[in-house]
Design a binder for these strands. Structure first.
Lengths: 350, 350
DNA sequence: ATGAAAGCGCTAACAA
DNA sequence: TTGTTAGCGCTTTCAT
């Protein structure tokens, strides 16, 4: 017990072979005799030999690790993306190290450094919403470390080894509003978060453009800036109800705020969707479980994670065949129509 | 551009110092002159020097990494625990590597090996529900790698460097049933998963004992084995309704199955909680958003993660002061009473 | 207060 | 087919 872990040197001694031969045998190098390979492998299992990746990584200059930096690992979205990331990375033999910025720029910066220290071969990032300074990402580029942003991206940045994967927030929002208009809504309000974040800005723009396309009013006061939380939604809805002219639909940029709005409407005896229709964004699990269930937009989170990893690994392995592709992928969102916005029965649905 | 990352050797050359001095200066070793430290640090920042953790880890035999192995990083529970783990580990300067078993014993075994190869200093595991053979964990022990199970644990295993953190599932279930009895329910059914998993077995036992304690029938057919999913819950509820004698309450071992049950009841025009009361387990986010909201048991996931890390780090640093503690921590669950089980108004609540 | 030298475990020229 | 040697970047005795 408590015997030190077996190393290649140990195997070499016990078999009267050189370390290099052991190394080659273990990696199934072609010019090692089958007999030797067998002996080596047998002893390796017997001693429960485990290769030391740190040493191998140091020697080869390839850690086989990817870094992930997210605002937090809670909620629905990030865990799903991380699930996709981990799954896809493992498929290519990469391990994944995870850090959280807690939506804080300082922690983000610090964690980027930690990832670089850990010698990851590439980094996947979704921005903290407080980040305004992007020097830490330029540092990553200076070190020629491939970098892929997902969902919450830095928009100015560009380079051979920087990329981004997002879903088409604009399109998703546009579809939501188009759907609401088709349901007969004419005065559609919008809950949004801070517009310096690409996701909110794009959803907001999609909302505005769709309104215009359908000849609906796009009054400024229909856009409500609120916390993208349950409480934010209730607050936003109260504000809307306090005004002289009520909306007949609310499209919230985040699902949970739509729930807040729904709770206010229920208490006020306002029917959803008949009096006010409701829609959210992200397809959180609970949108299917509320009563009425909430129309939302699915972001295909897992695919986003997988796609981001694929892009990153393309950069890591630096495939010279492929021409320097735009390194920018926009995934299609999917509108999920549920009860909260369905005023007219779908054709043939009933 | 594309300049190789600066190393200690580089700093040494540029400053006409030896690598050892640089190393000491960077780690603020006491017998390096302040003047030298200043020069070194200045150049380090100028060259954007980043220490190579792989090399340091190899040399020191301490990777400063912890391994996490969970069934998956989706849903509510595991992401929250992982959040707690990552947060707590980072506080002590540890990085976290994450793998998913996808509920598969083979992948679990494989990932344990990968974690050992990665030279993590300790491993946190929640068992895949298909795991019946535990040899891979004995391997971890043979390598004297500290191991802490959380939530889904191996019960037979024991040793100086194995531990477990769970919540008191028995107690949580007991409290649910006690509450239902207090609400006047007399025929309480239970949805459960496979009893070889400690969580389901303990919740089931708590259910049974509480029934007995309150003089209620504990008929075998009141325990329904079903998939712990939405569909499993609808299926289980249908089975119960098809029987001659209806229950007046259902306690589901998993929240989502309670939602399934609720949907069936709504469609059947059976009122919740008046006709049949409902309760779940885990305090998933959606339990607060359904209508009626669902009574559940909070597991304090984040605390579980933090506690598990603390225990693990205690083992890693092998504090000899502390007597070999039992390495077994049971956290208290918290019953959250919501509408789905509330037949009588709480005293003073209205 | 600083330097020289060795080595963590592994791999990859280069030799034999 | 196998062995020799050197070195990835860092830390740590031991010496000065």
């Amino acid at each position: 017990m408590a015997t030190r872990r077996a190393s290649i040197t140990d195997l070499a001694k016990q078999l009267n072979l050189s370390p290099s031969t052991i190394s080659r045998a273990l990696s199934d190098h072609e010019d090692v005799s089958q007999a030797t390979k067998d002996r080596v492998r047998q002893l390796a299992t017997a001693l429960n030999y485990q290769p030391n990746q740190l040493a191998a990584g140091l020697r080869k200059g390839r850690s086989k690790m990817l870094g992930v930096l997210v605002p937090h690992i809670t909620g629905n979205f990030f865990p799903q993306v991380v699930h996709g990331i981990a799954t896809e990375a493992n498929l290519s033999g990469y391990n994944v190290m995870i850090f959280q910025s807690n939506e804080d720029e300082q922690q983000e910066r610090k964690n980027i450094e930690l990832l670089m220290n850990a010698q990851v071969e590439g980094i996947l990032v979704s921005l903290a919403n407080s980040t305004h300074n992007f020097e830490h990402f330029e540092m990553v580029q200076d070190n020629t470390l491939p970098l892929v942003f997902f969902d919450r991206i830095v928009e100015g940045i560009a380079g051979a080894s920087v990329g981004a994967v997002v879903i088409d927030d604009y399109q998703g929002a546009y579809e939501v509003v188009t759907h609401l208009a088709a349901q007969g809504c004419t005065r559609i309000a919008h809950f949004t978060g801070p517009l310096h974040l690409n996701i909110y800005r794009n959803r907001h723009q999609g909302y505005l453009d769709a309104l215009q396309a359908h000849g609906l009013p796009a009054e400024e006061e229909l856009t409500v800036f609120c916390e993208m939380t349950l409480a934010g939604g209730t607050e936003g809805m109260r504000q809307l109800l306090a005004r002289p002219q009520r909306p007949d639909a609310v499209f919230s940029s985040i699902d949970v705020a739509a729930v807040g709005a729904m709770q206010v409407l229920k208490k006020a005896g306002i029917r959803v969707p008949q009096d006010i229709a409701l829609a959210g964004f992200s397809n959180e699990q609970f949108t299917a479980f509320t009563d009425p269930s909430i129309t939302s937009v699915d972001q295909n989170c897992e695919l986003m994670g997988r796609t981001a990893v694929q892009m990153l690994l393309d950069m890591v392995t630096d495939n010279p065949e492929r021409p320097a592709s735009p390194h920018n992928i926009v995934l299609k969102p999917k509108l999920l129509i549920r009860e909260s916005s369905l005023r007219k029965p779908k054709a043939g649905a009933f």
